[in-house]
Design a protein around this nucleic acid. Structure first.
Length: 467
RNA sequence: GGUCCCAUCGUCUAGUGGUCUAGGAUAUCGGCCUCUCACGCCGAAGACACGGGUUCGAACCCCGUUGGGACUACCA
């Protein structure tokens, strides 16, 4: 069995989007599963729209997702000789011909044709003129006008196309650049690609490509067309459906493993399993379990997965990842150990790194602000006595840890004062965090440390006095 | 318009003729846990688009209808 070779061929006309990332991922997984190779190829033959920034953005995103390639990146603009060589073969064997029709005329004739109720395909004007090269001339493929082309799709099964429906597509533009359908074929042939896995928006291109393979007398690769990812309104994902750029998810505080897990499960499944490690993915991924129906991108489920992976991370590791996000909030610097301890208490309560950074505020800021409603409700004269006693008791504590703290609280509040712990926990929480929702009270006290806790308790006492 | 693809809870999906009074996940709602909020646990509600066949028997096979999507460039 020949080794599997897959490829991901983005065109550098923008950032890597969610759909492209999934295609890349499927190709990567398929190659890794079969212990084959994964190629990265930059399809930059559209010189007007291709940019270096886009190339960098795509590479960055691939890197963030840990999708490494074994060959490339190859650039089509550096392979022009190859396309010319293959084009010559087609011209020589009569499968391609020069055409001098100009874009404007073509457009006009297309409109006339559809006005007359005909297919707006190329009318074959230059087909048998025997034209040679010349300025403003393109090379077209001579599509058979009868017969059927079969695409045996790995995902969708056999699909039949009448060749008469296809027209004579342009192979080489008047500027000498190959067009997509031609360059892909030449590249996939010369790179020995065995499996072409791509979005099913390419299904209709495939018969044209198959015809080119055949005209070249070359063996076909396997094709697998993956259904598209749709937005909430069931149309193709685009900017108006929210963030579509992979890197935008990084900025929003998502973990690459969450995005990968989400993307792979959108269109592929393995029984009832939802969570997959990278190793499991490689082991279990198969085209057989890729569905045929398009999927709608569901931000809620992604968020859930992200929260899941956030919870799984070791606090120290998460702290490292959190640093850049913390920075954007301009908090005072704190030691790594302190950060990790604080992170640990917040981990199960947040969904993104941004949310985590945001919720670190009461641990990091010099002073806290009371939520007005919370202060009004909980920082009242009736907790004064308890606050005073608690502050005093905590001040004398030798070991300032969770268990000891809880003991002190229970002794004073429950035993001595005969109150329910809950009655006093909320006010203390407000005094320490400014909010009514936070990690466990004793965890918070433990992380904050004696000095800060006593200081904030005294501040709260003063606040109560002043109202 | 033409060509092609698709169709199970709101969403992602399991399901490949009988085990389906259709399973899981997410989202929603309720309860438990509890110092709050989360996490976690338990529970509720929620789907085979429709119509014909084939068959002893269809979510599963066939046809049609409807609905949705993609493509229809000297873009990829």
């Amino acid at each position: 069995m020949e080794p599997v070779i897959t490829r991901f061929p983005p065109s550098p006309t923008g950032y890597l989007h969610i759909g492209g990332a999934r295609t890349a991922l499927f190709n990567w997984l398929f190659a890794r599963h079969h212990k084959g190779q994964f190629i990265l190829r930059i399809e930059d033959t559209d010189q007007i729209r291709s940019t270096d920034e886009s190339i960098k953005a795509i590479l960055d995103a691939m890197d963030w997702l840990s999708l490494d390639w074994d060959q490339g990146p190859f650039y089509q603009t550096q392979r022009l000789d190859l396309y010319r060589e293959y084009l010559q073969k087609l011209i020589e064997n009569g499968s391609a011909y020069y055409c001098r029709c100009q874009p404007e005329e073509l457009e006009k004739r297309r409109q006339q044709a559809s006005a007359a109720g005909l297919k707006p395909k190329y009318d074959g004007l230059c087909r048998n003129l025997g034209l040679g090269p010349g300025p403003d001339r393109v090379v077209r493929f001579r599509t058979p006008d009868s017969g059927t082309t079969v695409l045996n799709d790995l995902i969708k099964g056999p699909i039949f196309f009448d060749n008469s429906e296809l027209d004579d597509l342009v192979l080489q533009r008047s500027d000498g650049m190959p067009t997509y359908n031609f360059a892909v074929v030449v590249d996939d042939i010369t790179m020995n690609v065995t499996h072409v896995i791509r979005g099913d928006d390419h299904v209709n291109n495939t018969p044209r490509q198959i015809l080119i393979y055949q005209a070249l007398g070359v063996k076909l690769p396997f094709f697998g067309h993956v259904p598209m990812i749709l937005g909430q309104d069931r149309t193709r994902m685009s900017k108006r459906h929210g963030a579509t750029s992979v890197m935008a998810y990084k900025e929003m505080g998502y973990l690459p493993e969450a995005l990968v897990n989400y993307l792979v499960r959108l269109g592929w499944s393995h029984g009832d399993q939802e969570i997959f490690s990278r190793a499991e993915l490689i082991e279990k991924f198969s085209l057989d379990n890729v569905g045929k129906a398009p999927g709608i991108f569901d931000p809620d489920k992604l968020l859930w997965l992200n929260a899941h992976y956030l919870r799984e991370k070791a606090p120290e590791e998460l702290t490292v990842l959190l640093k850049p996000y913390l920075k954007s909030f301009n908090y005072p610097e704190k030691p790594e150990k302190y950060l990790a301890k604080a992170v640990k208490t917040l981990q199960p309560r947040v969904h993104t790194l941004v949310e985590l950074a945001q919720s670190m505020k009461f641990y990091l800021a010099e002073s806290i602000e009371y939520d007005p409603a919370a202060a009004k409700k909980f920082l009242t004269p009736e907790v004064k006595e308890a606050f005073a006693k608690l502050t005093g008791a905590m001040g004398t504590l030798e070991v300032f840890d969770e268990a000891g703290l809880e003991q002190v609280f229970r002794r004073i509040v429950v035993d001595e004062m005969g109150m329910k712990l809950g009655k006093i926990a909320q006010p203390v929480r407000v005094a320490l965090t400014g909010m009514t929702a936070s990690p466990g009270l004793f965890e918070v006290i433990d992380v904050l440390g004696k000095d800060t806790v006593l200081q904030r308790m005294k501040l709260a006492l003063a606040y109560i006095e002043s109202r």
